[in-house]
Design a protein around this nucleic acid. Structure first.
Length: 554
RNA sequence: UGACCUAUGGUGUAAUGGUAGCACUACUGAUUUUGGUUCAGUCAGUCUAGGUUCGAAUCCUGGUAGGUCAACCA
């Protein structure tokens, strides 16, 4: 019994972050861990953030720690509560709960006091140079910078000026507070980085309390430190910021949070930059941030992706420090993997052609009760009405079929899913040669549950023509046609790769049971794909968004 | 003509000085009332040149390639 209970846990090696955490826990450096997810509320979360969320929350969950949600709101000109709300909703939808909801702006006063301390110790100064001068005097990556003429101001003068900055005595850009480090440092970030700049703008939380705002580098590490974050995980491009992160913590002698970097997620055929996504929305190429074609969490949600599938994906992509570009097919596999287990099945015909069973008695119907989901017996069953006149998929019949075509062909037999075997006897065409009706006969002895089971090569889906309900379907395809959206052809912009066929709306016919489906996940249209119920904004009629097609479904 | 980060099949990711493994993709085959699922299998990899070592994907050095950094963005 014990052996049965002892589930042979999947042998899985640790990623480098888990190794660091385990080492820190083992050495007693930390008794427990605290991570944080620190979005700037200036846009909606996307699948790339999902990786970061799963990493931060997942690490804490695995090692019995906690995770804070902290909004990095140090730039009032870009941020908005709209984004704060959507971020909270998306993190929760993904299935994570933060220990504390915090804001960098909660710490503005403490940050200000620490800045005064740096000034007193001769480690910071007020600079009067304008933006242009500061930029030029910073030097280049190959040439050292030039020290500011204001670098030698006394602590008293700096304190006075800094206080005047806070009191609003200066206009935007007139003065900044800089750290006094090394203008010839090989790392550009260490060439007297700016700590505070003047921005007379309304902040979504502190309103007009402040007109000076800390820069990312001055705020982030100290915020981590205040919260006693043990492992501050961010993406690779912040690697060069780490010396600065450590510099402030060391000089201020505060809790030694440590920063670790991992490679951000890239997906084929997908743009991940918030700036570009915002442009897609603003220029109307998509209906909004939650357009089902968007890689945003809310877009994926409307598309029918489950939180489980996204978490599975985050797990599958792994964590490392090398740049990567994940094949979209991995994401699609994760979605199918999850949905296959939980999606209810329905028959829907998207491109109908009429099929009449000539030897089936007119005016009679039959009821079949197939399982809603053969992968999950607990899902129950549904009623499917069978009749003399059906719709089948136009694709499921070929007059001149190739060799390995298993579906309906002249003189051929095929099983109608859940019901009888039929044989194609005659084709009726219109004056243009288009097939308008297929006449078949059925084998009454092939009824499931009666007599001996007979196998035929092909099984096709169908709906009863008199009973079918209309189902509007949105067939989404990838938004872009280029596999590497960060690696474009010369002279082209990402917008040039927009896929004109990314959205196709089709009116199909569905079995009536679909209407009553109450499941919260996408359903499977048999032999077609997974579809999530959505609503057309103007008509409020249900429409079905294609989540992902079935793998090689014809 | 700088500093830092990185380099394993087509794509990701393991192997921490000792048999290069796993997943996705592609392709075979078996099962199947979804050409789905499931199962079995095949193709395919250590950037390069030296060095250390009995032994190197792993350590060292040089080279090459890619990435990051010169916002009062994060």
């Amino acid at each position: 019994m014990d052996e049965i209970l002892k589930e042979p846990t999947e042998e899985r090696s640790l990623n480098f972050l888990e190794e660091i955490v385990e080492a820190d826990l083992a050495s007693g450096k930390h008794m427990s861990i605290l991570t944080r997810f620190p979005p700037e509320p200036n846009g909606y979360l996307h699948i790339g953030h999902a990786k970061s969320i799963c990493l931060n929350f997942g690490l804490a969950l695995k090692y019995g720690g906690e995770t804070n949600l902290r909004f990095d709101d140090t730039n009032p000109t870009k941020e908005d509560v709209e984004y704060v709300d959507s971020i909270k909703e998306d993190v929760q939808w993904l299935g994570f709960q933060w220990a504390k909801e915090l804001y960098a702006s909660d710490y503005f006063e403490q940050l200000y006091i620490w800045a005064q301390e740096l000034i007193k110790r001769g480690l910071a100064y007020v600079d009067d140079q304008n933006q242009e001068e500061i930029r030029i005097n910073r030097g280049t990556v190959t040439r050292p910078g030039v020290e500011s003429p204001y670098r030698g101001r006394s602590a008293e003068e700096n304190l006075m000026l800094f206080s005047a900055m806070r009191e609003g005595k200066f206009k935007d850009g007139e003065k900044v507070l800089r750290a006094k480090i090394d203008m010839s440092h090989p790392n550009m970030l260490m060439r007297d980085p700016i700590l505070y700049r003047i921005i007379h703008a309304h902040h979504h939380r502190t309103a007009n309390d402040w007109c000076i705002y800390p820069m990312y580098d001055y705020a982030h590490g100290q915020c981590d430190s205040i919260e006693k974050i043990t492992h501050s995980i961010c993406t690779l491009e912040f690697d060069v910021h780490r010396p600065l992160y450590d510099w402030f913590i060391e000089k201020l002698e505060i809790f030694p949070s440590k920063q670790y970097e991992f490679a951000r997620l890239n997906l084929t055929y997908t743009v991940m930059s918030k700036r570009k996504l915002l442009e897609l929305v603003k220029r109307g190429f998509v209906a909004g941030w939650d357009d089902p074609r968007m890689p945003t969490i809310c877009g994926l949600r409307r598309r029918g992706y489950t939180p489980e599938s996204i978490r599975l994906f985050a797990d599958k992509v792994g964590v490392a420090k090398r740049d990567n570009i994940i094949d979209l097919s991995l994401l699609e596999w994760c979605v199918r993997e999850d949905l296959n287990k939980r999606a209810n099945r329905y028959m829907v015909v998207l491109d109908p052609v009429k099929l009449t069973i000539t030897n089936y008695p007119e005016g009679t119907t039959e009821l079949f009760t197939p399982a809603l989901n053969p992968e999950d017996p607990a899902a129950g069953s549904r009623n499917v009405i069978f009749s003399r006149e059906l719709f089948i998929e136009r694709d499921d019949f070929m007059e001149e079929p190739p060799k390995k075509y298993f579906r309906l062909k002249p003189g051929g037999e095929v099983r109608l899913k859940y019901s009888y075997i039929i044989k194609c006897e005659e084709i009726i065409k219109d004056e243009n040669g288009k097939i308008v009706e297929i006449l078949c006969t059925y084998d009454p002895d092939s009824r499931p549950g009666t007599g001996e089971w007979r196998s035929v090569k092909g099984t096709i889906h169908w709906v009863s023509a008199p009973n079918a309900v209309e189902a509007e379907v949105r067939l989404f395809d990838r938004l872009f046609t280029n596999p590497e959206m960060d690696n474009l052809d010369e002279g082209k912009e990402y917008i040039d790769y927009l896929n004109p066929d990314s959205l196709k709306v089709v009116k199909g016919y569905a079995e009536p049971a679909l209407i009553d489906d109450k499941s919260l996940t996408a359903v499977q249209f048999e032999r077609i794909g997974y579809f999530a119920k959505d609503y057309d904004w103007s008509t409020n009629k249900p429409v079905y968004n294609r989540t992902v097609g079935l793998k090689s479904a014809w």
